[in-house]
Design a protein around this nucleic acid. Sequence first.
DNA 1: AACAAATATGTAGTCATTACAATTTATAAT
DNA 2: ATTATAAATTGTAATGACTACATATTTGTT
Lengths: 134, 134
Amino acid sequence: MKSNTTEYLKQHRVKPSFQRIKIFDYLITKKNHPTADIIYKELVNEIPTLSKTTVYNTLKLFVEKEITQIINIEDNETRFDADISTHGHFKCLNCNTIYDFSFDDKNINIFDIEGFDKIQTHLYIKGICKTCKN
Amino acid sequence: MKSNTTEYLKQHRVKPSFQRIKIFDYLITKKNHPTADIIYKELVNEIPTLSKTTVYNTLKLFVEKEITQIINIEDNETRFDADISTHGHFKCLNCNTIYDFSFDDKNINIFDIEGFDKIQTHLYIKGICKTCKN
DNA sequence: AACAAATATGTAGTCATTACAATTTATAAT
DNA sequence: ATTATAAATTGTAATGACTACATATTTGTT
Ligand SMILES: [Mn+2]
Ligand SMILES: [Mn+2]
Ligand SMILES: [Zn+2]
Ligand SMILES: [Zn+2]
């Protein structure tokens, strides 16, 4: 039986290799906005022959095929998200957790760039999460 | 006669050295959201003894003292902005220009993170600018 | 002037990412 | 099934942004 991921990758013109399926499954189930290194360190336990280059190559491919987005909330680390719906990211400056949130795209009044073609929107908020406040 | 920058730096507990004034003036007059390297390459013409380390140190100091903000619109480059007012950034994927825009902070409906303390908000939009469309 | 503190500089090192060549695996043809 | 060809993975070396740190210079104070 083929997994959902296999079909999903095929639909987006990504050949579903063993490593690619594992990496995509990791992203979609964990939803933790990991760095390439975090993905590698976790998956190398399951796949001892895994190469870090493969993780980088695969993530780059996913981004090209638009099934993964890059999260640049912090300048010293590139993070990845297989949820490509338009949603915002909140990083807690205390516990470093990155939370998803939704926002009303239409409701933002944007000035000064009328007539520009807007392709991607990224909304990042930093602060202290509810858990850390208590 | 002391420059405006000198006074501004003092007010924000930054000792106004020659290099710091030059770097801050560069940011505030050019408004080009440069990388550390761009600042260095431009200013080293005026100040031949300038060190790239000084540029990095100075920018880090400016960020600490909250007179400069970091722009993470692209993952391979850290950019800087001496305009610390809340405003958005639009990057044209064709000409790579980064445009400022204003947005109505209050008007964004944000869900799922009620009760979180929001300290910084960054809104990044990528697309094609009006000039490149024509 | 002499001293101490702050700042700037240059070099060496770190770390995330990429380039590239060599293996391995998958696909197609015979 | 065997061979040939293409695609994907791997390991290593290189790159480049940034930082650590020791030294030199500047600034301010006695
Ligand atoms: Mn997300
Ligand atoms: Mn700006
Ligand atoms: Zn927290
Ligand atoms: Zn443009």
